[in-house]
């Protein structure tokens, strides 16, 4: 049956419309979880607020289990689900840059738009910086191309690399995620910060 758009069950326009609705829902949940506050986001790195980690890991684990169950019921064909190809070097370099920007700016790209939507000035400045970065990368692409395209791995799966079934790997990941949740609770107690 699924993916709906790939199998022509819904038209590309309906697909965009659904993306629009889901996007609004995503933004709403981000805002309601307090992600529009740069202090909350930076809290992850200082240890006084681990909500970011909890929300994103819960989201990831839920989506993973959901897809695996959908696949089990025959509702979605995982072979047809598009996965961005992995370029290892650029993933690491990009991750470092993004992480540094995250600590310094107190936002990640999605949450900065959330913050801007409720009128936060720091979020708007962050978006400005984001666009400068985008233009710098786009116009400087010939400079970065070799780095960008090095170590291509198409769409690898950790489960395949470890020779595990997807289900067993999912189980391990859930255990790891839960372990991190309890660790996060402990860290929050250890580095409390009352007012922000």
């Amino acid at each position: 049956m699924g993916p709906l758009a790939v199998n022509d069950i819904i038209s590309p326009n309906t697909n965009f419309f659904l993306a629009f609705v889901i996007g609004i829902g995503f933004g709403f949940v981000l805002e309601q979880s307090g992600f529009s506050s740069s202090r909350k986001l930076a809290g992850l790195f200082y240890g006084y607020d681990m909500v970011v980690l909890k929300v994103f890991f819960t989201g990831g684990v839920t989506a993973m289990l959901g897809l695996l169950f959908f696949s089990l019921f025959g509702w979605v064909d995982l072979n047809l689900v598009y996965v961005n190809p992995t370029f290892l070097t650029s993933a690491i370099v990009g991750g470092l840059i993004m992480g540094a920007g995250f600590i310094m700016g107190g936002f990640c790209p999605g949450t900065s738009f959330c913050g801007a939507a409720i009128g936060k000035l720091d979020a708007m400045i962050f978006i400005l910086g984001l666009f400068i970065g985008v233009y710098f990368f786009a116009f400087g692409y010939p400079m970065f191309e070799t780095l960008y395209k090095s170590a291509p791995m198409s769409s690898p799966k950790i489960s395949t690399m470890l020779n595990l079934s997807d289900g067993v790997f999912a189980f391990i990941l859930v255990v790891v995620a839960l372990g991190m949740f309890y660790l996060a609770e402990w860290v929050e107690k250890k580095f409390p910060r009352e007012e922000y």
């Binding site: 289990l65 169950f69 089990l72 025959g74 995982l78 997807d166 289900g167 839960l178």
Partner: peptide, 18 residues
């Protein structure tokens, strides 16, 4: 999460048809 993960770990993998 543990219950769901346990189920998914125990069922045979990927029964969807390509």
């Amino acid at each position: 999460l543990m219950i769901l993960a346990l189920i998914i770990a125990l069922v045979p993998q990927n029964t969807t048809r390509p």
